[in-house]
């Protein structure tokens, strides 16, 4: 009567091994969400299109040369000062706004700029024109765009807090969650209309 050993492999730790693998895959697989600076291109102008005449003071010129240096309104500038300078330009409010569908928007009542006559009339007239060289590094170009968008965001944020008491990104998010809410829609559009994002890309220089 010899005792029969049945040599069963202990499978108890198998689960542990599999769990370890599972957790490893769960952690390492990033669902990489694509994010970026979104931009809307202007439509292709018709061939007989005559660009409107814009007053020099309503244009904020940013030039980036091939060595990635910045020239803002004819002066050299560091990229860290770009946002504040752009904000001062947009928010200047030195004159009357443009005529929007037959309704004159009048002077900018919410601007807190210094109302200088040599700077922009109204945020809806203020145009930021970015001109870069073909040889400019893309990283610098995008940083400039980012700074300019930041300037607009800061102004919108300020106005949103003033008028509705909440930061603009929150306002926008709550509208995105509830698109049928007309009141929110009106608020978002009001802020966007007050500080429209006008950043144009001029034909690049090349040599």
């Amino acid at each position: 009567m010899a005792r029969r050993e049945n040599p069963e492999i202990n499978a108890g730790s198998m689960a542990d091994i599999a769990f370890l693998l599972l957790i490893f895959f769960l952690v390492t697989t990033t669902m990489n969400v694509d994010s970026g600076v979104s931009k809307k291109l202007s439509e292709k102008p018709p061939e007989d299109y005559v660009p409107p005449i814009i007053k020099e003071k309503n244009i904020f010129e940013v030039n980036i040369n091939r060595n990635n240096d910045l020239l803002v309104e004819g002066e050299r500038m560091d990229i860290k000062d770009l946002q504040s300078t752009a904000m001062a330009f947009i928010d200047n409010g030195g004159g009357d706004g443009k005529i929007d569908e037959g309704v004159a928007t009048g002077p900018c009542t919410y601007c807190q700029g210094e109302k200088s006559i040599s700077s922009s009339d109204h945020p809806n007239k203020a145009i930021i024109s970015v001109q870069s060289d073909r040889g400019t590094e893309y990283g610098t170009y995008l940083k400039v765009q980012d700074e300019l968008i930041k300037a607009y965001s800061a102004l919108r944020n300020r106005l949103s807090k003033e008028r509705y008491g909440i930061p603009f990104p929150e306002l926008e998010d709550s509208y995105k969650d509830d698109r049928s809410n007309l009141e929110l829609k009106k608020k978002v559009e009001d802020i966007k209309r007050s500080y429209p994002e006008i950043i144009s890309d001029a034909e690049p220089t090349s040599n």
């Binding site: 291109l41 202007s42 292709k44 073909r134 893309y138 170009y141 890309d201």
Partner: peptide, 22 residues
């Protein structure tokens, strides 16, 4: 270089693909 990006952008405008994301 920005030149390459601008070339792409002009082509995108030609076909009316106006929404872009950098």
């Amino acid at each position: 270089n920005v030149g390459t990006i601008i070339d792409i952008r002009l082509k995108l405008r030609d076909v009316n693909a106006l929404k872009i994301s950098y």
